[in-house]
Design a protein around this nucleic acid. Sequence first.
DNA 1: CCATACCTGACTAAATTGGTCAAGTATAGA
DNA 2: TCTATACTTGACCAATTTAGTCAGGTATGG
Lengths: 141, 141
Amino acid sequence: MKLTSKGRYAVMALVDLARFDSINPVSLRDISLRQNISLDYLEQIFSKLKKNNIVKSIRGTQGGYILNKNPNDIKLTNIFYAVDEKVKTVQCKKESKKGCNGKATKCITHDLWDELENHINSFFKNKSLEDLIKNKKETRI
Amino acid sequence: MKLTSKGRYAVMALVDLARFDSINPVSLRDISLRQNISLDYLEQIFSKLKKNNIVKSIRGTQGGYILNKNPNDIKLTNIFYAVDEKVKTVQCKKESKKGCNGKATKCITHDLWDELENHINSFFKNKSLEDLIKNKKETRI
DNA sequence: CCATACCTGACTAAATTGGTCAAGTATAGA
DNA sequence: TCTATACTTGACCAATTTAGTCAGGTATGG
């Protein structure tokens, strides 16, 4: 099990954005430099974040992105969902006629993965962008 | 984030094994048939489980595998560790001189992934094979 | 001695990841 | 109006990982 870079970058970039977003939009170039993330890759990520109404864009010189919601209303769940980072513990979820073991029944450990998924998702649902910048203000990097 | 088949199969196979392991060893062929997992793949997995003292093998006709510990002492953590299923949320862990962003500092969300990792691992540490077969006896598949 | 079942290592097709590259479009400021 | 900045879109790709397969073993009970 692992979290991919896309999800990690999305969170990093949004934390960065939230910290510098005061009046002026923040350009991807700045985020790219500060966080050491490829600009081209950031563009892909922000395209998705925008489609999910997490950020909005301002074009042109001095343009950039700003948050489209209160940091407290942006949960990790929303971010991961936006960039297609799925907490799929197992394939059992597929809406096939068959069960997850190719037979008619549920696989022997099906309930376990359900439970695990809930466990992880509860973490993501409870953690907001606000929580993350709050911490950051304290450690003051 | 996803859990790979290897870890899932390992757990499924061990649950199967734990349920049929009374006096006689259980052959991989039987597990393969019941759980619909490739025999060749199972052999790879059990080789690792054996190296980690979770099961032991009995060769020859009527041979097979049996648990090497009390089901209550086999936690999901142990199983995943054995088959190299890692809960690595992020690469930040590498013991490189540099921080996780290529700079000298920790990345801006470093603590978050630490926290997440702990959250997930606590689930794995608390769940034993015993818990899983207990449930199975109840639902009686 | 042979069928069963464990054991080992090499190999591979397909998918995913983590990007790069190229060619735009919109807009603020000179 | 021109131009630099910065968002926008889509195609492409190398490297890695995954989920196995295949081909040979070796040990042992009957």
